[in-house]
């Protein structure tokens, strides 16, 4: 009888405690996955900027992907976030962050908030991130999480063509969606000495990242690396 009572008590405790333990172990699991992601996908591929590595290790990527994709959040691939859009592969986010050489006093403009993950990584490093999304449902979802987690991120749902003039000029502009032309207002809102990173090519095939540098009257471009912004599963 004594044993039966003890077993029953253990079962009851187990039933109540299980969700809490499970939640904690999932969080630990994500943290472990994140640290492995930084080591194997990012550092091993040559990303050396300590700000970037720290930010990538800190931002919980799984919060920026749809619920049904969370188990893939730290895998080495882009993921669909709906509306034909993707959250970039972790390495690409790290690469685009490092290439603009972010510093704590930077003000950065991002065109194409998407999931909000790139903005979150930047917000860990720079003074302020201004991010614009044209697809309203995506922008609203990203705004909800970014404004909860960060006070140095401003989200606007609008056409990125015009940039965000009242907060310019910017030290860096990160464009996350490929465009067939670079809007003149963005060039204007780039500081002298500022840089812009932008993917060139169709959204569903191999693209080339391009770095645009503004120095006085001279504006030059440099092709960087081929990247892929392709979903690995169809969006729901």
């Amino acid at each position: 009888m004594f044993y039966l009572t003890k077993i029953t008590n253990l079962l009851v405790m187990g039933i109540f405690l299980l969700p809490a333990v499970s939640k904690e172990s999932t969080a630990q699991n994500f943290e472990l996955q994140r640290s492995q992601m930084v080591e194997t996908q990012i550092r091993d591929r040559g990303i050396r900027d300590r700000h970037t590595l720290r930010a990538m290790g800190k931002v919980p990527r799984h919060l920026y992907v749809p619920q049904n994709q969370r188990r893939f959040a730290y895998t080495d691939r882009p993921l669909p976030i709906g509306y034909g859009q993707t959250i970039s592969q972790p390495y690409i986010v790290a690469y685009m962050t490092e290439i603009i050489k972010p510093r704590p006093d930077f003000r950065v403009l991002e065109i194409g908030t998407g999931s909000g993950y790139q903005a979150a990584v930047l917000a860990e490093i720079v003074e302020h991130v201004y991010t614009i999304e044209i697809v309203e449902p995506l922008g609203e979802t990203a705004r909800a999480i970014l404004e909860k987690e960060y006070d140095n991120v401003s989200v606007k749902i609008a056409d990125g063509y015009y940039g965000w003039e009242e907060h310019g000029p910017f030290d860096a502009i990160v464009v996350t969606a490929a465009a067939e032309h670079i809007p003149p207002p963005l060039i204007e809102q780039l500081k002298d000495g500022g840089v812009m990173i932008i993917p060139v090519g169709s959204p569903f095939r191999v693209q080339q990242l391009m770095l645009v540098e503004k120095k006085g009257e001279s504006i030059t471009s440099r092709s960087l690396m081929p990247v892929r912004f392709v979903p690995f599963t169809s969006s729901d």
């Binding site: 056409d159 063509y161 067939e180 032309h181 670079i182 809007p183 504006i219 471009s221």
Partner: peptide
């Protein structure tokens, strides 16, 4: 759409409105 503009591989020197 008000967000549709067409200027394929426009020069960086263009300062007008597309």
């Amino acid at each position: 759409s008000d967000a549709m503009r067409y200027a394929p591989a426009l020069s960086f020197t263009f300062t007008g409105r597309v």
